[in-house]
Design a protein around this nucleic acid. Structure first.
Lengths: 217, 217, 217, 217
DNA sequence: TATGAATGAGCATTCATTCAT
DNA sequence: AATGAATGAATGCTCATTCAT
């Protein structure tokens, strides 16, 4: 019985569960990122994942669950990336600067994940927007805390011309917007991006014109 | 007992074409805003518009065309609102301030339109994102021009710590972000919003802490 | 009151009924011929006719009626064209020959009508096929009569090798087939076509090979 | 009381793909034959096939593809049936006779297929008519070759009174017409039909009247 | 563990037909 | 005599989801 021809095990079958789950999640993030929640089809996801549809249902549940899990995973990654830059023993501006760098590093490393969080999750009603909005709210609050403590220490109030929370919202929006812009201008480093934002927020246009500049550390 | 019950002409049938078109567009913007392009159904749009589906197809074409027309109309409105604030004979900061007020007035008057432009149009591949991105690009360029001319007049270059276009991108992002925040905090006037942004951008956090403030005029 | 500018009466409105009916029928034949009964749309017919849809319904009834009237008109025309060639006082072969010429003259003059009769009417179930089949049956019977009387006069029976009706059916089919072929080879005259068929039927391939030929008169 | 009622496996579910495909094609040919391409509905086809609509789309594609596949299958069958009768080593008349018999055997065995090819495929614009016309053209050319070679061997030219190709066209038309007639007169055998045509074409009406007859072999 | 086979339900789109003017 | 305005009813097609193996 010499016939030991094997059917080419190129793509190994019978993988352990967590490996399969990661494959599927990766594929799902990719497809959701490209088409959005509604236009993405389970068929395409299963194709990209190299797995049959029933497996997706068995491991990760229905489409909604799958999307939720994508959002959660990417949100956790983003949060982790930002957290790594925040050391409580640094001065507020340095915390902000490192946080921004962490954020841009996440965006660079997980474009699809970023798209899912920033573009797709918000357009689907209900819980998904909820999760992302929570994330956003946390980011805003972190910034707000940094900013407001600094401000109040020096006597800054919440007057018509200024609002701490509004500043935080603006900063987060500016950071996001710059992240999108970055996707089309990849030859800028994440620390340069963070510097621009710091200068904008900390010094403002006027001081920049005057020649003042903020620099890390 | 003259029973003067009239056949209730409540909703007049047989309206002229342009009136119907407006009705349909209004309904479409509303529905697209709520559910996004893919999840929106022509059935719901026709219900909301109080018109049968064939009319939609007869007057405004297929779903894609309909969405495109929504986007175009709202984009035109937004552009108009911003333009009304820009008078070439004003100093740059005042132009910016009035432009921002126009923007927030549009957002307040057309929440659904704003959602369609900001959230929904960008998630659908192709031409729609294209149109909105063009709009955004124009806004960014307008801001960029204002900012850069001011800057260069005073000798500001494009250095590592600062970039004119990036500043514009950030400002637009901040303005958008603040617009979203505003939807949940409607008790702030559009001029206050604009003032906050002006102070952030023109003076920066540092100057604000020092007690300096930008005020219109 | 000098303002006698008139709105250019290019296409005269307010035409008498029978003129409108002809316009509509002509358009209908054309459209049915191009697309077939089911794929033809009342919209296109009304466009081609230069008349609004309600007029079609008012003058000629629903789509089915309209198609029926097209079929009837063209069938009558065809019948008339063939009849003009049949003079009872001519010998059978000459009757056949003139009938064939009439048939081809109709086809040449009314391509669309011929298509409707030959191609479209037969694919729609029910009455339409009925009318055309009647027409066909009449043609076949006419031919059959010619042929059979000639045959029986000379003692020809209905044997296994031959059947009068079947011959007629074949001849009609051959004539139709040649009509279709003619549409792509328009540089042949109708009398040549008729001659070919006469030679085929009357003499047969074998005699032709032997050099015998049938000629009119 | 052993109650051996079984769950009735009457119609087995879960069939392999190729079996289902055949079922669907059979149903489609039947339905297209009855109503024509446009009037046939995918719903009815799926009903007749005993299969849900999505299976049709999954296995055979959209309506157009489905129709194309029906046409192709039946065309291939017809071609095969005719080819089986043509042996290059037979004399021309015998080849023709056997080819005709093959043709009529196909018509008898696949009435619906024949209708689809002869009636329905030609009324739908585009590729379908194309395929059937190709088939027809091949048949005509085959006949033409048989006839013309015989003719030229004996000195027959292409004169006004006769044309080889036109004869072929006529013969094919006659054969088709006779096939239709046969559907209403099923008590005639295919060899009798073929004989009639042979006598018509080979000998012609005149010789038949004179008592001459063509017989196979 | 893994999948081919199968479907209910929904959606975009079109069409014949009529009403009000 | 003539039409713009309007719709009920279908039809082609797709998708998320499950079953049987």
């Amino acid at each position: 019985m010499t016939d030991d021809v094997k059917p080419a095990p190129a793509r190994p079958r019978r993988l352990p569960r967590d490996v399969r789950e990661r494959q599927i999640l990766d594929a799902a993030v990719q497809v959701f990122s490209r088409h959005g929640y509604h236009a993405a089809s389970m068929d395409e996801i299963s194709d990209v994942a190299g797995v049959s549809k029933p497996m997706i249902y068995a491991y990760l549940g229905a489409k909604e669950d799958l999307f939720a899990k994508c959002v959660s995973r990417e949100a956790a990654r983003l949060l982790e990336a930002v957290r790594m830059g925040l050391h409580a023993d640094l001065p507020p501006d340095m915390q902000l600067w490192h946080g921004l760098r962490g954020f841009y590093q996440f965006v660079a490393a997980h474009r699809d994940g970023w798209t899912v969080l920033h573009r797709q999750a918000l357009t689907v009603g209900g819980q998904f927007a909820g999760e992302v909005n929570d994330l956003r709210a946390r980011a805003i609050e972190m910034v707000s805390t940094l900013v407001v403590t600094t401000g109040t220490k020096k006597g800054l109030g919440d007057v018509a011309e200024f609002s701490g929370p509004a500043l935080a919202v603006s900063l987060v929006g500016a950071a996001e917007s710059l992240a999108d812009w970055w996707l089309d201008h990849p030859d800028v480093s994440d620390s340069v991006l963070a510097s621009w934002l710091m200068n904008l927020v900390w010094l403002g246009f006027n001081d920049l014109v005057e020649g003042e500049v903020w620099r890390p550390q």
